[in-house]
Design a binder for these strands. Sequence first.
DNA 1: TTATAACGTGTGATCGTTTTCATCTATAGT
DNA 2: ACTATAGATGAAAACGATCACACGTTATAA
Lengths: 324, 324
Amino acid sequence: MASIKDIAKQAGVSISTVSYALNGSTKVTEETAAKIVAIAKELNYVPNAAARSLKKRETNIIGVFLTNYGGAFYGQLLQGIQDTLSSKGYEMIVCSGKESHRFIPERMIDGAIVLDYYFSSAELIRHADAGHKIVVMDRELTHPNINQVLLHNTSGATLAIDYLIEKGHRKIYAITGPEGSYDATQRIEAVRQSVARYSDIEYQELPGDFNKPAGEKAAEQITKNFTTPVAVFCLNDEMAIGMYNYLAKTKYEVGKDIHIIGFDNIELTHYTQPRLATIDYSERKWGAVSAEHLLKLIANEKAENERIYVTLIPGESVGNISSN
Amino acid sequence: MASIKDIAKQAGVSISTVSYALNGSTKVTEETAAKIVAIAKELNYVPNAAARSLKKRETNIIGVFLTNYGGAFYGQLLQGIQDTLSSKGYEMIVCSGKESHRFIPERMIDGAIVLDYYFSSAELIRHADAGHKIVVMDRELTHPNINQVLLHNTSGATLAIDYLIEKGHRKIYAITGPEGSYDATQRIEAVRQSVARYSDIEYQELPGDFNKPAGEKAAEQITKNFTTPVAVFCLNDEMAIGMYNYLAKTKYEVGKDIHIIGFDNIELTHYTQPRLATIDYSERKWGAVSAEHLLKLIANEKAENERIYVTLIPGESVGNISSN
DNA sequence: TTATAACGTGTGATCGTTTTCATCTATAGT
DNA sequence: ACTATAGATGAAAACGATCACACGTTATAA
C-alpha cells in the first residue's frame, strides 16, 4: 500500500531521491539513503510491479507455456529453467491455455519458452515480429527473435530401431504420435528411414496420440493379429505404459511375445515390470539450455539453435529373437 | 507496440473515446466504435497489462504457489484450479521459489493459492494484513483475508489404520512426514489416536520426509529388525514407493512380510506390483474448490473453510494376518 | 579570489491506461 | 424560438514508478 510518495513525505525528500536511494544509486548520500531505506522498511514498502514495468518496459519475468499440467508434466525441465533464470535475476511463471498467450503481447513477460502444442506457429511468428523473444522446444521456426532448443529426435528414434534390429527383431510396429506434433513427426521420419535400410523388415504403423489409451488400443490391434513375436516402438513412454496395461489383461507377455521400447524415460517406466527400454535425455539440461538461449536473445546476443542429445536405456521389455 | 494513442490519432478521436469503444461502453456510437475496433485490429493493438493494472489496481491473475515442480506435481489439482478460474475470466500462473513470493505485495496478482511448504505463515499473514486474499491448502490459518481448503487428513489416517487393524495387523509402523508439514502432523496425530484405542498394538514411528529415499531408509530399518510380519503406514505414497524399491532388492515381500498402505493415490501407485493400498481424494475437486473460495474472498463474499473428503483404496499390498 | 567541476537533491515529463467531469451538439418539449 | 435534456466526445487527472535535466552547494584548481 505504501508508495514511494509516502516515503518521500515521511523522509522529507523528493520522490526521485527515494527512487535513487532504493535502487542503490550512488547519487544519494549514504546518510540520506540509510534514512530512506529505514523508512521504506518501516512502511513495508514494496515497489508496485505495474508502475515499474510500465516505465521500464520490462518485467524480469519469463513465461513458460505448456499444453497442460496433467500427464507428463515436465517437473525436471521446469526446475532446469527456473534455476537458470533465477540465477540471472529473472522470475519464471508457468502458464497453460489459449488465454494465457496474451501475456506476450500485453508485455507481461520479457520472453517466452514454448512447449505447447496448441500454440500456433503463426501466432508465435506474429509475436516475434512484434519484437518479443521466444524459445521453442517443440518445433522448428526460423526467425531472428526465435531460437530453437530441441531434442535429438532422429538419433533417438534411430537408436531405438537399431536396438530392436540388433536384438533380432524383423517384425516391427511403430505407434505414432499426434498429428502435427514436431517430436512425433521427426521420430516417425527417422523410423521410416531406419527400417528402409533393411529389406527383410516387416514394418507397420499404428496411430497414436502420446496418451495411454492410444497404447491400449494399439496393443489390442497387435494382439488381435498376433502370429509371431513382434517388436513395438512406442513414440513415447506414455503409450508404452498403455500397452503394458492392456497386455497385463491378456496372455501375451512383454519382452517375450510383445517387445516394447519407448521414448522419454519418464519416471513411471522405472517401475514397470519388466523394465521398459526407452530413450533418455536430461530434462533438466533441456530446460536450462532453453533458458540460457532465451536470456541471450533478450540481451540481443547471438544464440545458435541447439539439440539435446539422447541415449538408449536398454530394458527387459525387449528380448532377443533368435534369427532363423 | 501500438497504443491507444495511435488508434486515437488514426481514428481522429480522443484516447478516452478509444478506451470506451474498446471496453464495449455504450457511451460511444456504434459507428465510431466499429471504426475504432477495426483500426485497433489493423494495428494489432493489445492493451498494455502494466498500464491497465496500474490504473485499475487489479490484474485478473491468480498465483498458485508450489514448493517445487518436481516430485508429486499436482497436475490434476492445477487443472481444477485453472478450469474454475478461466470460467470466471481469471488467468492462472504457477510459481515456485522464495523470490516469487514478491508477486503478492507487488500486486502482480489478485490473489494467491498456497501449497508451498516454504511459504511461512508469518509472511502469509503479513500479506493478508495488507489486504491480499489468500487460500491455503497446506495449513490452518485464521484471518479474514485467508481461507482454508484442506484435506480430511485425520479421517484418512484413521481409515488407513482401521484397515490395517481390520486385516489383523497388530504390529504397526508409521513413516512420518517432514517436520512442519501440516498434512504430516495431522495424519500422524490421527494415527496416534487410532492406535491408542487398542491396547494390544505394538506401534512405532520412523522419520520420513515425503520422498522416496526416506521410504527406502525406513524399509532398511524395518527389515533389519524383522521378526514377524509388520504393517507400515507411509504418510504418503511417495515413501511407500521408496519402500517397494528397497524391498525389491531383499527377500521380503510386500503384502506378505511387509504390509504397506500409503496416502494420496498418486498415479505411480496404479503400476506397483502388488497394488498399493492408499487413501484417495479428488485432486481436481480440491483445486476447483480452492479457486472458488479465493474468488469469493476477492469478491468480498463470505467463504467458509472447507475440507475435502477422502476414501480408502484397498490393495494387495496389505494382506490378512491370522490373529493368533 | 574566481571559475569550474563534482555532488546531492528536486522538478517534471513520461510510460499507457481508466475514468471523472466538462463540453458540445442535436433533439425534443413548450 | 428557446430552454432542457440526453447523448457523444474530449480534456485532464490520476495510478506509481524512473530518469533526464536543472538547480544550488560546496570543494578544487587556476
